[in-house]
Design a protein around this nucleic acid. Sequence first.
DNA 1: GCCGTATGCTTACACCGTAAGTAGATCACG
DNA 2: CGTGATCTACTTACGGTGTAAGCATACGGC
Lengths: 222, 222
Amino acid sequence: MARREPLNREKVLDAALELADGEGLEGLSMRRLAKALGVEAMSLYNHVSNKADLVDGIVERVFAQVEPPDPALPWPEQVRTAALSMYRVFSRHPVVPLALATDRSNPTSPHAMAAMDGLVGALFQAGFDERGAWRALGAINGLVFGALLLSTGGFTGAPGVHAGEEQVGVYIRRLDPARLPHFSRLLAWTTKGGVEPPADFEQALDTLIQGLEATAKSGHSG
Amino acid sequence: MARREPLNREKVLDAALELADGEGLEGLSMRRLAKALGVEAMSLYNHVSNKADLVDGIVERVFAQVEPPDPALPWPEQVRTAALSMYRVFSRHPVVPLALATDRSNPTSPHAMAAMDGLVGALFQAGFDERGAWRALGAINGLVFGALLLSTGGFTGAPGVHAGEEQVGVYIRRLDPARLPHFSRLLAWTTKGGVEPPADFEQALDTLIQGLEATAKSGHSG
DNA sequence: GCCGTATGCTTACACCGTAAGTAGATCACG
DNA sequence: CGTGATCTACTTACGGTGTAAGCATACGGC
């Protein structure tokens, strides 16, 4: 009667994150997770109260990897590094932004709040008042999550960045250059390579930060 | 034997959109949709090949409401109106951004491409080359969808804007002002009202556009 | 009138999250 | 040591999901 190595919340969450990274959020089911752990589905409920709780757990676990910015740096640099850190971490675990957008749950995760605190601190340093900081925070988070969700989930206004080249070709052939001149010109360019999501995001972020610097100077309330 | 009024794709999609708007994307199931139409689930498959096809259909239908910008206006104004139009339309139908982020499907929708074409045209007018336009487009779409998904789905780095005031109170009490000084200061402000998602988005958009103007002037490739 | 086609219903399958009940192993305490 | 409490895992079951397969009915063109 060799007892199996005991399960615990940490192991469950680790396995869940691995499964979700590999199979996507839809591929993460209690039954499949249990099977991966060599256990029956209902046993998981000893360590996790819900599927929602499970998802919250992996979100929190990933947020723990986000590095808060160094308050000694100039504020635009803080915003830059914090946003980039979020982007990088979530790129490795695309389930997380999706889970945050899908479920209505969460936001009481300590690590998530810590990450936000750093960002907000930088915005206060910039001279924003509460309203301005709130709006700037929305802009930053929106850009980070939007970029991740669009590049992951499928819609860039173009075929996913993951699509093979032949697919893109079909796509382009379907659109009428006479009716959509600009968009087809742009898509033609994307097929020649040159699309690099991380660099593209970094550029978009810098653009936003430039805007933030301008509005921070001109008026406090953003 | 009074025949029932015949079904067609349009009626199915209309009912699906209405159901999804009312009950959320999760509430949209073939069985429930069929019941709403006074029909059995499998009958829907005569007008729709898939659930994915159904969702694509409502996405396309909503995209049709997005107004392309007027090419005669100055380009920042074009970007502004186009992005705002997307934001407003999708605010009325929050299922759509969620569906785009969730499913890996879609993007061959004519109306969606038309909306993108207008935006890209404005960016070319601004003097961006392909790479710059691509990145600017990513920034704009990212911001629009990110703002929508975060305000809808739950995570603003704060309790959802929809959360009742007492919930927010509980939330704030849970966080330690000593450990998270900036974030708790910001959240304290949000409880006093003043959070207005449309205005907040508009401000974020203007900030981004300011950044776009700066980068458009300084160099072509964004 | 007749037949192909389109429409709708019925049944069935494999999956999902999880409530409820139960068996067995482990541990604290007398 | 015995004994009871607790904790873990398993089994079973319910109502939900998307949809494949088969069958009945009604309509349009000849």
